[in-house]
Amino acid sequence: MAAADPVIAVEALLFDYPGLRALDGVSFSIRRGTITALVGPNGAGKTTLLNCIAGLVLPGAGRVIVDGIDVNRAPREAHARMGYLADSFGVYGELTVERCLDYWARAQGIATAGRKAAVERAAARLEIADRLQQRAGELSRGLRQRLAIAQAIVHEPAVVLMDEPASGLDPEARFGLAAVLRNLSGAGMTLIVSSHILAELEDYSTDLLVLEGGRILEHRALGGAAGEGADAASIRIELELAADDGNLPAILAAAGAGDIRVEGRTARFSLPGGIGAQAALLRRLVGEGAPVASFMPVRTDLQDAYLALLKESRKG
């Protein structure tokens, strides 16, 4: 999937481990302001890909451009535009939360005048402003996670990379994390989030990047989510009638619906044209006397789509 104004451009990336090609000519670009779910089975190359984008390792070949900077030629300049939450992150347990954030603000080159505000802003975004005087080592796993994310975004980077951010969190903390990620995206940051928990990714992701065997299986915008371009895409809709109606397929087809599947009183179909087209179809159904009991867009089931994709890929 190419993007007009990519904030991340990866070109023909190659990375090897002894006896294993972990990334095999990976190329893609990421649109500004999106949240990309990076998924794939264990050993697919997700962490290696994130490490390459972060400039933590030199790839065997290929290029990574982040916000216009070649990561392998000018890693420190690229890091000033990036935040990274590693799978196994650490925090300075002996320092207070405020000092941790202050240190990272200094390390990312924020001038003295703006440092206090940057620390307060990051703490507020991650809802840890009430913990500023607590030692980082005394925080719960969920709060340490929030502190680590606050550290990663204290300099308001254009791009934030997160490797398995939800691992080890309890359900409440996971729910909070989803809100945090949406909040960061709302603030204009572009996120790539790698995770195994697809149901959660579905809550906040706008794009999907599937990796298997070091290659990209799929990269696309997710329908039903708030992604750019989602309005123009076909939306899957589920319709339930109170009683059987033999005219239903004809009405749907006449309204421009595609891939119509009717089972008893339930129909599933795709409808292009966004919410305007949905309203028009609903008016038409009611106008033609169809006993509509419910009418709702169906969110893409990321897990089903992912599993189907893997199955198809392995068959091929």
Binding site: Y92, W104, A148
Partner: peptide, 14 residues
């Protein structure tokens, strides 16, 4: 050991 090194490498420190 404390897993802070990779995060440090992501800073803008020269």
């Amino acid at each position: 050991a404390d897993r802070t090194w990779d995060t440090q490498r992501m800073s803008a420190l020269g």
